[in-house]
């Protein structure tokens, strides 16, 4: 059948017709990056001077955000997939993160210094 012919034709190719197809090597590279970031995360946790510094929390947050993004983009192949899926995920995610920040402000876990005195 025509289908099978098409399959045989791109057996060695990169499945050009499919919209998502990172290679095995990409998956492994992503895994290496994820592992490396995790190692760094745990490593800095054991450096007391860094834990005490102002950079500790932001750097952890950035690293986990990068891991989060890499998994979503490559393993959940959102980078290669239909833009509708991106909208279905990022829209709710942004509202959820906005809610998280709202709650952190409301419960005094975060504060904006406005210089208005007691706030």
């Amino acid at each position: 059948m025509a289908n099978e012919v098409a399959h045989a034709a791109d057996a060695h190719g990169a499945h050009a017709d499919d919209h998502f197809h990172p290679q095995w090597s990409t998956y492994w590279k992503v895994a290496v990056v994820l592992t490396a970031i995790t190692v760094v995360e745990v490593w800095i946790y054991y450096i007391p001077s860094f834990v005490a510094s102002k950079l500790f929390v932001p750097s952890l947050l950035i690293m986990s955000a990068v891991k989060f993004a890499i998994v979503v983009m490559f393993y959940m192949h959102l980078k290669y997939d239909h833009k509708l899926f991106r909208a279905l995920f990022t829209g709710p995610l942004l509202i959820a993160i906005g809610t998280l920040f709202g709650l952190m402000f409301l419960f005094g876990k975060l504060a904006i210094r406005l210089g208005l005195g007691a706030g």
Partner: peptide, 21 residues
């Protein structure tokens, strides 16, 4: 619909959330 997620605490003005909130 979108703004509807950013107004919830107006049900709670009387609990004392502070002037900014």
């Amino acid at each position: 619909g979108f703004l509807g997620f950013g107004v919830w605490a107006h049900h709670m003005f009387s609990v004392g959330m502070g002037p900014v909130a």
